[in-house]
Design a protein around this nucleic acid. Structure first.
Lengths: 167, 167
DNA sequence: TCCCTATTGTTGCACATGCAATCATCAGAT
DNA sequence: ATCTGATGATTGCATGTGCAACAATAGGGA
């Protein structure tokens, strides 16, 4: 019988190191996002997804962004973003504005209340990420992680590439 | 004004490296799970969460596991697992069995059909993880990743620790 | 000018998921 | 034996999410 070598058989079982790196990421991600979300919700009544949206909007000039740009920045579908902005608007944290140059488009603009809430939530979130993640990683590992993610995300189009041309 | 040093102010903004490592993980995780889930669903009609459950059950002796043990192994709540097993049972991939030693408990056992389906899905999944993740990581990075996740997950109880004793 | 296609944002629908309540059962104390 | 608290599993309910369909508008060519 053949020796299962990872370089020849792409569907060979994972070895210990591979398993540790892969499942570890899944578990760490789940634990981190769950803890951070709960923390943010408890301290400011703001889910993590809402926080991320507010943060992105706040980085844009004029504190406003087009829905489509926002959907690309955030890990969320178009429809998901629409409902999330609905909620934020209901809470008075953002306001929708129509786009003069494109009647189809909408802006989401950060309100003063949204800015205040975001500033407070930001401190909580940054401290939470440091406590649970960044403080447990050396500078060298930090750089290695960044490199890995860049490489992983560079092949974001492997879906198409993996599918036979005339599928 | 004070110089913002990451060692003194836990809520100081992230620097470039920190941002790259943190947001990179969020994006990479989202991209990977989405691609792998879609791939598995397309090839075998099996969502990633179902695959993980089947895999864990298959690793247990007698190909069966208690619901509570399963819920601890998988990243899923108790109720979520109950419904997931409902679906898998409806598809004939697992079967529920009562536990002789504890009438409260249930086993989920892998059926022959489940075993067949899992074997096929496993090849797809392993190859997918290699293609999108493992093949893009050096052995040194792999080890570093494992170390990082261990450290991150070791403090899985920071929630309680961060809460004031008599909160 | 008119038409055709692409894009933007929203909505209907289905679905997976978590929390809290619930039921049955276990284990231990009295 | 009985009572009590803890535990395993399930269910009702609410919620967040994605996909596909849709309406409105943009942009470009005949």
């Amino acid at each position: 019988m053949a020796i299962t070598s990872s370089t020849t058989d792409p569907s060979a079982p994972f070895d210990t190191q591979e398993l540790r790196a892969w499942r570890g990421m899944l578990r760490a991600h789940a634990a981190l996002t769950k803890a951070l979300d709960a923390e943010l919700e408890a301290a400011h009544g703001l889910p993590l997804s809402s926080y991320e949206v507010l943060l992105h909007v706040s980085h844009a000039e004029d504190q406003r962004m087009r829905m489509c740009d926002l959907a690309d920045s955030v890990i969320l579908s178009r429809s998901g973003l629409t409902r999330l902005i609905d909620r934020l608007e209901r809470e008075g944290l953002v306001a929708r504005e129509s786009c003069p140059s494109d009647a189809r488009g909408s802006f989401a603009r950060l309100t003063p209340e949204g800015r205040t809430k975001l500033d407070a939530a930001r401190r909580t979130h940054l401290a939470g990420v440091r406590l649970r993640f960044l403080d447990r990683v050396t500078p060298e590992e930090l750089e290695a992680l960044g490199d890995v993610w860049d490489r992983v995300l560079a092949g974001d189009d492997v879906d198409e590439a993996a599918v036979p041309p005339c599928g």
